[in-house]
Nucleic acid binder design. Structure first.
Length: 890
RNA sequence: GCGCGCUUAGCUCAGCGGUAGAGCACAUCCUUCACACGGAUGGGGUCGCAGGUUCGAACCCUGCAGCGCGCACCA
């Protein structure tokens, strides 16, 4: 190991090792390997996205699992890739075109626009990939996939065709969630319900057959009034029974519309009379269908009023028109009042504007293999962690609605359906399309275009991005119809690591698609990560500017520091409040580790040992503790307790290894120490550190690889990341005797330091201690005790006659006195003792109280009672001692 | 409205039936030859509230409150 700077500098080290791993093909999976398989598919990030903390947590976890699996002797495939992210990517490119070239996608036309998007993808698509590499992710990059690769696209078409032929995909005119900004339909999952301060408008419609008599109606959307085709009341509502079957006057455009009865109407809400606008509300649409009502669409796709008969409103934005319509009603004397009203409004997930329920022709999917998918989680074939998400999943699976899979976008997988040109008008006008049209030869549904392509027109829509993502686990491993070695070896995958926010979007759908198209479950375990929030508990978002850039954090603290810091505070199951100080801790931890190794390096090397090493209790103790750590980690990994694993690693290195072990053996390394002791100490250091680096490696891959090399723990040309975990413990047995002694020494040293601090002599190195009644082994650890306590001299003298008032502590190494030699302020000491006596007195009273409780003594387990008695004896002894000291001072 | 979580030291979180824990922050001391991205010592909590079970509850049960998140066609 060459000279090391005082502080660890991760930057070059991390870059160097990532290159080395790539060059060594350490991440590449071999499907012909005889080792058992372990596989994960990455949740593909948006191809044009940039790394945020959520990605860091998610991918660090996957990397930990992958690296640990390699150490366990598995053949590991971590399959990476990116998602084309239809709406998000198209919106970005459209914005760029608008700003830079002043053109819209329609100006360019479909083909030219798609070229622009591909160009954009080629320019930005590898940003997030590079960022994942910076983080240290051990993905098999030779297998990187993109959801719009040719072979992947073939899968998407193939799946569409299969499901169509199975009768699960159909086209129909329905009310869908329409985004007036993106100009496309959305699935129910892409709509975010948000509480809004709205207004409830109360108005009245005049009875057609009884001028002067009015029916009162309440609505939040007066601007769609022109699309009203009826007013509905509840049939049980006695107030309105007399109106059913009669007509009321719609104010504008003037028309007479019927009053109908429908159970859906809530008697309690508003006036209890509901205006029916089938074109602009899902419930109204259903009522309209039931009663055979007309559908009048009064909105344009981009959310403006379309009603040429009413020039006052025609062309206005929907929200402007709302106020205007209310004004018009007021002018006509028909507006009764406006109330403030809290309701939930659906917002477009991507565009952030209220969605518009809109009638349109879309493709829908009835989900396949619903029962199998629901059962797989219910019966434990797939495990969710934390388990409670299984309930959320089950609830969604029980209430599945058909999935609107078509999008009015250009960037995506185009629907593989062609219409015969000569039937186009007819087909477009149809209320629904399905197998019958296919069988009649009017439409072509296939993975390739029909032979006489010029006689056909392809459906312009593309598919929902999730319609490609749900195939990810198997479509990344084999092409359609192929049975590759990769698929055979690595599918089903082992673990899936993802956020609970995409249970419906992705996880549930993958389970269904996996079952339908491979006959297998796509994964065995799903680990749901924490959602990362800021310190105020807010979700991280670009607009709030509360989302730290992980690249900045890596610049400052290193990738290892970021990984470790984040993982150490990641709770299982609940949200995580991110605090940069935890990343700082991660950096500090790497530095601590580095300096421990630096210390070892400075000790140099010694001639090889002759015979068996002479291990002291401190040596055996740290080895036994490392064995304990190794065993515990096996269990913790099995339970996916990532935060606890980090915590245990941290404690071992910092507290056990550095604070206790290293401090205790420092004396062995001083000049003049016996050679055998030096040799045993360095040997212990090397053995323990070599194993520790390996245990830590999944969390901090770069620094551990670096130190293993520099310390010579791994042979030249080999990698720590590929070394299998040792199968045997470092020492036989539990070294209980060593643990007892080392614990006693450290405890005692702590008591002595504490004593020194109490008497304001903490910094002095010349304080003398006298031990009375020391155990037999004390002699062997006396030097260590002196070192740890920062004492000048420690003598064993059972006959020592202490002057009255000499401070003393009762320890597991006997009674230890600290002769004051008259250097202490007597008044301050009296005061201190009085306080101490009061405190100890309370403890004695507490213990006595407990032991005088008959039911406690009789019913608590004997060992608990005994423990309590022992405690009481200790406190009493202490109290007596304090009293004596106090009396000595007068 | 239904469901699911959370509420422990100033902050972020562990603990989940037997004397309240960690890291950060704070105070005092230490620039002793691994590390000031460090070391030592210390202050700080009636474990959200109210009941119950138990010899004993932060931990189990029942209510309540506050916060958060899902799901839901009340216009």
């Amino acid at each position: 190991m060459s000279e090391l700077s005082k502080a660890y500098e991760p930057r070059e080290v991390e870059a160097k090792w990532y290159e080395a791993w790539l060059a060594g093909k350490c991440f590449e999976a071999d499907p012909t390997s005889a080792k058992p398989a372990y596989s994960i598919v990455i949740p593909p990030p948006n191809v044009t996205g940039i790394l945020h903390l959520g990605h860091v947590l998610n991918n660090a976890l996957q990397d930990i699992l992958a690296r640990r699996a390699r150490q366990e002797g598995k053949e590991v495939l971590w399959l990476p890739g990116t998602d084309h992210a239809g709406i998000a990517t198209q919106a970005k490119v459209e914005r760029e075109l608008r700003e830079k070239e002043g053109v819209t996608r329609r100006d360019l036309g479909r083909e030219a626009f798609l070229e622009k998007v591909w160009d954009f993808k080629n320019r930005h698509g590898d940003i997030i990939i590079r960022q994942l590499k910076r983080l240290g992710c051990s993905c098999d990059w030779s297998r990187e996939r993109f959801t719009m690769d040719e072979a992947y696209t073939e899968w998407v078409s193939h799946v569409f065709v299969e499901l169509f032929k199975q009768g699960l995909i159909y086209r129909g005119k329905r009310i869908v969630n329409w985004c007036p900004v993106s100009l496309t339909a959305l699935s129910d999952e892409e709509v975010i319900m948000t509480p809004q301060k709205s207004k409830l408008y109360f108005m009245k419609y005049e009875l057609a057959d009884a001028p002067g008599e009015f029916l009162e109606i309440s609505t939040t959307r007066p601007e769609t009034l022109m699309g009203d085709v009826a007013v509905a009341v509840n049939p049980k509502d006695e107030r309105y029974a007399k109106y059913i079957g009669r007509k009321v006057r719609r104010p504008f455009p003037a028309a007479e519309i019927p009053v109908i009865a429908d159970d859906h109407v809530d008697v309690e809400f508003g006036t209890g009379a509901l205006k029916i606008t089938p074109a602009h509300d899902k419930a109204d649409f259903e009522i309209g269908m039931k009663h055979g009502l007309e559908i009048i669409d009064v909105l344009t796709p981009d959310g403006h009023i379309h009603c040429p008969e009413l020039p006052e409103l025609h062309g206005l934005d929907r929200f402007v028109a709302r106020r205007k319509a209310a004004e018009m009603l007021e002018a006509m004397g028909l507006l009764l009042k406006i109330e403030e009203y809290d309701n939930n409004v659906g917002f477009s997930e991507r565009a952030g504007v209220p969605v518009e329920p809109r009638i349109s022709m879309q493709w829908f999917l009835k989900y396949p293999c619903v029962k199998e998918a629901a059962d797989a989680v219910a019966n434990g074939d797939i495990t969710f962690r934390p388990e409670r998400w299984a309930k959320t999943y089950a609830h969604w699976m029980e209430n599945l609605q058909d999935w609107c899979i078509s999008r009015q976008l250009w960037w995506g997988h185009q629907i593989p359906v062609w219409y015969r040109k000569d039937k186009l008008a007819e087909l477009k006008g149809a209320a629904a399309l399905g197998m019958a049209d296919f069988e009649s030869g009017d439409i072509h549904v296939g993975t390739t275009a029909p032979a006489d392509e010029d006689q056909w027109v392809r459906d312009e829509d593309v598919m929902d991005t999730w319609f490609s993502s749900w195939l990810w686990p198997f479509a990344t491993m084999a092409n359609v119809g192929e049975d590759t070695a990769t698929l055979r070896k690595f599918h089903p995958t082992s673990d899936l690591v993802t956020g609970p926010d995409i249970i419906f979007f992705w996880v549930a759908r993958m389970i269904m698609a996996g079952f339908r198209f491979t006959g297998e479950l796509p994964f065995r375990n799903v680990y749901f990560t924490s959602l990362i929030r800021d310190l105020k508990g807010r979700k991280m978002s670009k607009s709030l500017g509360n989302s730290p850039d992980p690249i900045d954090l890596m610049d400052k603290y290193g990738a290892d520091g970021l990984r470790f810091g984040l993982l150490r505070i990641a709770p299982m199951g609940s949200d995580l409040r991110f605090d940069e100080s935890s990343v700082e801790e991660g950096r500090n931890f790497a530095n601590k580790l580095y300096n421990a190794c630096r210390f070892r390096q400075m000790a140099g090397d010694l001639p090889p040992m002759e015979g068996e090493p002479e291990f002291s209790c401190f040596h055996r103790d740290i080895m036994a503790k490392l064995d304990d750590l190794s065993t515990d980690l096996v269990r913790l990994y099995a339970d996916y307790r990532f935060g606890e694993i980090a915590q245990r690693l941290y404690e071992f290195l910092w507290s056990e290894f550095c604070d206790r072990f290293l401090e205790a053996v420092k004396g062995d390394l001083r000049d003049g120490a016996p050679l055998a002791a030096r040799q045993a100490t360095l040997l212990t250091f090397d053995r323990v550190m070599a194993r520790f680096l390996q245990l830590l490696h999944p969390y901090m891959p770069h620094v551990t690889e670096e130190l293993s090399e520099r310390m010579g723990f791994v042979a030249a040309g080999e990698f720590l990341m590929l070394q299998p975990l040792p199968s045997s413990p470092m020492i036989d047995g539990d070294a209980a005797d060593a643990r007892e002694i080392t614990t006693a020494v450290h405890e005692t040293a702590g008591r002595l330091r504490n004593l020194k601090a109490e008497y304001q002599v903490a910094a002095r190195r010349d304080v003398r201690f006298v031990i009375k009644g020391a155990p037999a082994w004390t002699d062997s650890v006396l030097k260590v005790l002196r070192l740890l306590a920062g004492a000048g001299e420690i003598v064993l003298d059972d006959a020592f006659d202490a002057p009255k008032g000499t401070p003393a502590v009762l320890t597991s190494m006997g009674e230890i006195l600290m002769p004051l030699e008259g250097l202490i302020d007597v008044d301050a000491e009296k005061e201190r003792l009085d306080k101490e006596i009061e405190k100890v007195g309370k403890e004695v009273a507490k213990a006595e109280g407990k032991l005088s409780n008959a039911s406690f003594v009789e019913r608590a387990p004997a060992e608990v009672v005994a423990q309590e008695k022992e405690r009481l004896a200790e406190w009493r002894g202490r109290l007596a001692q304090l009293g004596e000291m106090r009396r000595a001072l007068g």
